[in-house]
Simulated assay, not measured.
Amino acid sequence: MTRSTPPRPLDIEAEFPELADHRAVCTRLHPRPGVPKPGESSVGGPLLWPMDELWPVCRKPHPRSRGRRIEDVHEQRRVLAQAWLPGDAGPTDEERGVLRSLGREHRVPGVDDTDPIPLLPLAQL
């Protein structure tokens, strides 16, 4: 299925002509889950990292005793992507219940506010 950006709801330059001088060509990214190969870019992972280099961590003191599991984040994205396929009207009541449970934070016992925690990767180009 090919996805594209829908038509703009209004002509912004007609509403604000003074913006026309600031117009520029740009590329809008529409990242999709996938399995990138070593020579491909990745947004949101998985990322390649040298085996002999330590993963970057956060060492600043701030509350670390709770958070969301990455598996829950991935499942939430999968449920939402399925719920918003063309022809679907969004999440069902059952899916909303699943999404609520996936959105809750989990406590991690024994984690101190100054313990190093891995940084979350965003993009690899």
Rank of each mutant, 00 (worst) to 15 (best):
C26M: 14
F16L: 15
P9E: 07
R66D: 10
Q82S: 11
P116D: 00
P109M: 00
L47T: 08
L122N: 06
V108W: 09
R100C: 11
R69H: 14
P9V: 02
P36S: 01
A81P: 07
L122S: 08
Q76P: 03
P118E: 01
R104W: 05
R32L: 13
A20Q: 15
S41I: 07
V57A: 09
M1H: 13
A20F: 08
V57G: 03
T92P: 08
A89Y: 09
R64A: 02
P38A: 08
H30T: 11
P121M: 00
G67L: 06
M51V: 15
D115I: 00
R59W: 08
V73M: 13
A83G: 06
R23Q: 14
G34A: 10
G110W: 03
G67K: 03
S42F: 02
P118A: 00
V43P: 02
L125S: 11
G44K: 01
W84P: 05
L85C: 07
T5F: 11
E53C: 10
R23F: 13
A14M: 12
Q124I: 02
Q76D: 12
P6F: 06
F16S: 10
P50T: 00
L99N: 03
G39L: 07
P17C: 12
G39S: 12
P17H: 07
G110D: 10
P109E: 04
R28P: 05
P6M: 08
L19K: 05
C26P: 02
E95G: 05
V98E: 11
Q76I: 06
E18V: 12
D112A: 12
E15R: 11
P33M: 02
L10H: 11
S65L: 06
V79Q: 04
R104Y: 04
L102S: 01
R59Q: 14
L10I: 07
G44Q: 01
C58I: 09
M51E: 15
A81N: 12
R96N: 15
R69N: 14
G103C: 10
D88V: 07
V108N: 06
A20P: 11
V35T: 14
R59D: 15
T114N: 07
M1T: 13
V98W: 00
W49E: 08
P63Y: 04
P86A: 04
H30C: 09
E13V: 15
V98P: 03
H62G: 10
D72Q: 09
S42M: 02
V35L: 12
V98D: 04
P36C: 03
D21T: 13
G39R: 03
G44S: 04
I12A: 15
E40N: 07
L125N: 10
H74P: 03
K37E: 13
P86V: 01
P118Y: 01
Q82M: 09
V111N: 01
L119Y: 01
I12E: 14
R23P: 07
R107F: 09
L119F: 05
P7N: 13
L47N: 05
R64H: 12
F16V: 14
S4T: 14
M51Q: 14
E15Y: 09
T5P: 01
V35S: 12
L99V: 06
T92Q: 08
Q76E: 15
P116V: 01
P63L: 04
T2M: 13
G44N: 04
P109H: 03
P116G: 00
P33S: 07
L102Q: 00
E95H: 04
P56W: 02
T2Q: 14
R100Y: 09
R100F: 11
V98C: 06
